[in-house]
Every structure is written in C-alpha cells, then in structure tokens.
Amino acid sequence: MSIKPDEVRNIAHLARLGLDESQLSEFSDDLSRTLDLVDQLNQANTDSVEPLANPGQCSARLRDDVVAETDQREKLQTVAPNVDNGFYLVPRVIE
C-alpha cells in the first residue's frame, strides 16, 4: 500500500497536524511501510468473525445519577494557556 504525500496531507488535515513538505514525504514512506505490515491481515480469513473491540467479556459498569463534582474552575484553569474571566480563549471563530 503506497501512500502519496498528498494523501498524507489530507490525513494530516483531518488530524490537525501541520506538516511541512519534508515531513509529508517522510511520513508518506513511513506510512506506506507500516500499512504494508498491516496489510498482512489479508491473510486472515475473518468471514463471519465478530469484531472484538474490548478484551474480556464484560459489559459496562454504570454510575448513579448523582452530582459529586464541585466547582474546581480556578484549579483546573491553572494549566490553561489562555483564560480570561473563567473563559478559555481561542482565536476568533467566524460563524
């Protein structure tokens, strides 16, 4: 499976990774080789096999509908790069 730099550009956009041209070409090589590895899956006969998303046979444990979190805004925002008046700020989005 060969992945062209243009395809890498599209994937990088989906993943919001800003890659320059040299990275695009490096990653196109890396990705192609990794996908060759993954392509070995084609050897498996998976007809009528159910996919396994999580190991073990359990189902979800649920929580009761109880409010247990208190306001921690100041503490939680100490790690934020740009806050003002309790808001997180990002460059203006035009809607």
């Binding site: 003002d84 808001f87 997180y88 700020l89 990002v90 460059p91 203006r92 989005v93 809607e95």
Partner: peptide, 14 residues
C-alpha cells in the same frame, strides 16, 4: 462558543 464577548477571541464555556 461565545463570539460577542471579546473582539479578537472566541470564548469557550464548557
């Protein structure tokens, strides 16, 4: 997303 609070930023309330 709050757009009318700041002129240069969009403010996020989660």
């Amino acid at each position: 997303s709050v757009h009318d609070e700041y002129s240069d930023f969009t403010a996020i309330d989660l």
